[in-house]
Amino acid sequence: MIPQLVTVGYRRSNGRRRRLFLPVLPLVLLVSPLLLFAVLAGLVACLIFRVSPTAALLGIGRVLWALPGASFELEEGTTAFLVSVR
């Protein structure tokens, strides 16, 4: 399953907490014109470095599909940072 929600949270040194919930699909749709350029750039890079574009796309797809469940939390003193993919 592709990631559906990315949660980014942080706590500043003054104790203020912020948590951002980023819905992946709407964001991808929003930046889809830019993604088209990114895909084209990736294709050119694949041709330059003689990497199979199909294999590269499959590899990136596998990584994206495996992302749900990943999380990273860091707390240092009064600051904290969290990224979680669901």
């Binding site: 990943a70 990273f72 240092e76």
Partner: peptide, 11 residues
């Protein structure tokens, strides 16, 4: 700066 904790979960 205080205690540091890192918690990473990787599928």
């Amino acid at each position: 700066g205080g205690p540091t904790s890192v918690n990473i979960r990787v599928p």
